[in-house]
Simulated assay, not measured.
Amino acid sequence: MKDPEDKLPLLVVPDSKGRIRIWSELLKMPYINDILVLCSRSTPTEYLDFLDERYIDYLVVGYQQVDLENALEELNTKFRVKRVRVDSGGILNGVLLRAGMVDEVHLLIHPELVGGTTTNSIFQAPDLDDDEVPIKLYLESMEKIKDDIIYLQYRILDGMFKL
């Protein structure tokens, strides 16, 4: 780890399959303190060696894939992380939401329309079962920012409850 007193955020990236290889480029980002890769026991040894050779810290949490709940507990225990901001694609967003691991959702709505049927959603998850209800949100704030972009901040009211 770099300077523990540095207030810049720790970039935490789940990569149990060992696909990300651009760590040297990510380390150049001026708005992060350091990087921590979340791996699982199924992560290839070759990839863990790759990370070691580049002095990239990693944490093994989970068996076939990263155990996100355990990872958050470890981040709190080992690194005193109290707040996590997730900038990701729809799959990780969906997993975290369905697991009840999200307190707030912040969205930027850009005034552009793409269309199509294969574009990823910002929250991807399996369809709801018959006894499940959608996650309820409460709008905390709304702001129009530059270039007609709308910033929305929602608080999660409740998890996805079964009826």
Rank of each mutant, 00 (worst) to 15 (best):
I145S: 13
S42K: 14
D15C: 02
L96H: 08
S24F: 03
L139C: 14
I135P: 06
L108G: 13
I150P: 12
R98N: 10
V84W: 02
T45I: 12
E140F: 02
D57E: 14
N93H: 08
L128Q: 12
V66W: 01
D57N: 12
E104A: 10
Q64R: 13
M160R: 14
D131Y: 11
P4H: 07
V84D: 06
I149L: 10
L92A: 09
V37T: 00
R54H: 13
G100A: 08
V12L: 04
D148R: 14
L11A: 14
D57F: 02
I56Y: 06
I156D: 09
V13M: 08
Q65F: 10
K146G: 14
M101C: 09
G94D: 06
D15I: 00
R155M: 08
P30T: 03
N93Y: 04
R98L: 05
V13I: 14
Y47V: 02
I145Q: 13
D147R: 15
M29C: 08
D127Q: 11
L26H: 00
I149Y: 07
V13F: 08
L97I: 15
V105W: 00
L97A: 14
Q64L: 10
D57G: 06
F161R: 15
T45K: 14
V105G: 03
I32W: 01
D57L: 06
V81S: 01
L27T: 01
K17N: 10
A125G: 12
G100S: 09
P44A: 09
R41A: 06
P126L: 13
L113C: 07
L10D: 06
